[in-house]
Design a protein around this nucleic acid. Sequence first.
DNA 1: CGGTTTTGACCAGCGC
DNA 2: GCGCTGGTCAAAACCG
Length: 165
Amino acid sequence: MTPYSSSEFILSDYLMLDDNCVDHHQESDQSQSTESSSVTFNDASHGFDGAISSNNNMLVKCKNGNKRNKTELERPRVTFRTRSELEIMDDGYKWRKYGKKAVKNSPNLRNYYKCSSEGCSVKKRVERDRDDSSYVITTYDGVHNHESPFTSHYSQISFVQPDAA
DNA sequence: CGGTTTTGACCAGCGC
DNA sequence: GCGCTGGTCAAAACCG
């Protein structure tokens, strides 16, 4: 299964780093608002303020003033908001589904995946946008300790923050 | 036959 | 302390 073959696959409409956020303060300027303008997720349970980008311009938004100081200390979290019909996005890693839940803020189900590589405890959550069911929100939790065939392909996108490690 | 998905149960954190 | 909610486990079913 390689959904990348579908031309509708926009890589990332929305990208967010949760903690250990690198500073990108210029996101309000470059919002070209080409297709969907600034999306605000105030109703989401996490209460982050959103910033969007066009297809290739990935924006990173962080929230500093939150009281998150638990297990997320060294757990980078990246959230994609992707327009896709398929919820399964093959990012080069092998994921094993281990759970499915109906969350309160969304009528859709949330799926839980774990990296099936041994020793790699990266998790990811996949759910549909509660407002736009054509969008899929994918949250990656952690950093892979191994390579993937897609590493070179994504090498220009550095998700790993140096402070996190 | 081995790895993955499914699905309900279980558990932990949080608010009241 | 209790109930709600999100996250995980694990056994059975499923699939190549």
